[in-house]
Nucleic acid binder design. Sequence first.
DNA 1: GACTGCCACTAACCTATGTTAGTCATACGG
DNA 2: CCGTATGACTAACATAGGTTAGTGGCAGTC
Lengths: 251, 251
Amino acid sequence: MLVHQGIERVIRRYETRAPLTDADRAAIRTLPFTYRTLDPAAYIVREGEPPVVCALLLSGFAYRHKVTGEGERQILSVHMAGEFLDLQNSFLDVVDHHVQALTRVDIASVPVAAMRRIAESHPLIGRAMWIDTLIDSAIFREWIVNVGRRDAISRVAHVLCEFALRLKAAGLATAYRYELPMTQEQLADVTGLTAVHVNRVLKELGHQGLIARDKRAVEIVDWDRLSAVGDFSARYLHLDSGIPVNSASAG
Amino acid sequence: MLVHQGIERVIRRYETRAPLTDADRAAIRTLPFTYRTLDPAAYIVREGEPPVVCALLLSGFAYRHKVTGEGERQILSVHMAGEFLDLQNSFLDVVDHHVQALTRVDIASVPVAAMRRIAESHPLIGRAMWIDTLIDSAIFREWIVNVGRRDAISRVAHVLCEFALRLKAAGLATAYRYELPMTQEQLADVTGLTAVHVNRVLKELGHQGLIARDKRAVEIVDWDRLSAVGDFSARYLHLDSGIPVNSASAG
DNA sequence: GACTGCCACTAACCTATGTTAGTCATACGG
DNA sequence: CCGTATGACTAACATAGGTTAGTGGCAGTC
């Protein structure tokens, strides 16, 4: 059931990118999936391995990260149900980062060879998968800006806005209220800050009346001001969610 | 002549990614190119435009960047001869960043529609182009780490190592000596620092005997120590240059 | 129902990097 | 050659965010 949902989620997303045929849809549904459930923090892919399988996230959240020589972690992206986790690697020789479960996750793995085959034999699927990776890239680029040129409060506000719209677009939450699937330390690893400072910033965003929190639940109280503080524009997400690009009134 | 060189450069690179056929090579050579020479700082693509043409860099250097609401620039990538500049955009609806000439450049532009067609009708070329964008992504990811989790001296050292290996792999310089095609202010925009601090760091790298400089010419005096300081490993570049992955003795 | 571990949160202090405001050398156009 | 940019470089000072070292709440477990 979950499996079915996860796969249909992908098909639905791909259909917004390219007009799939019945044969395309059938090919996706009949990929040789293997199912697994993993606990939080379980590794899905490890740096240095050759890519063997490509995982589709059916439920839960996963994150991509690297660790510096000094042992500091930087989170590179966060993924949600309906996303392939390893398209970034499946066509390269070696994996250059780790992918780990953020929450309990259900995944469906496909051998890399089968992914390569479907991309080649079904050009529209190949196109849609390529676009998926290009959107990942667009988000990477925005994160370089976030971490390179914004101050702490903007970084955190920006990330909160991004998650809001992505969760909404994926149909996993409304844009104004969602459960942040990570600890403050992980949010620090997303934003290039320390957990202590993330805590200070979250408190400040609360004081300013931009967000309200209850444990990890986030409510965006004032989207316009939060997105202004976070210097957020949805353009880089390349969503087709009908939300206007500038200072969107989401929800 | 230059044109010829630029195109053959691309073909050569793509052949390391997928075994192209004669028909593939011919298809690349007969793409409907339009040639232009641009001065430093000229815009090649602007944020917010729909992608119309895809530019191949024949000579010189170009950079990709975004500007925050506060007006601060963050450089996202630097590109050299033989690279397509806009594969990141050509399959998306709207361009989410600027691409500008860093030096005087020669470019060959192809209408986006022609790029889409060649990718679809020649699967091996499509595959090679996809891999190109995946390697761009891998570099974006490393830059997130660089700017998010390394201190100033490591960031600059890391960038110097990256350029060394990329220039060498492209056959544009030896790994131990090259001309850095940018001002210290632009290097600051690459590393998320200020020009003042980049200057301090370059001086320090000189004092420690890791590099020597003459204007913008950089000589890497001690590759092993520089790459250690920069926490640099070539893995993420996915080069086939025969250079070992860890603390490479390049050159 | 005490123990353990994890996570949110805080306070006091510290430092890497930013800011401001220059000087100086070089390249270029008239 | 003179005037004007531009970029490399410097010094003095300012601060955002890091570091260290905690406390307390809560969920799981034996």
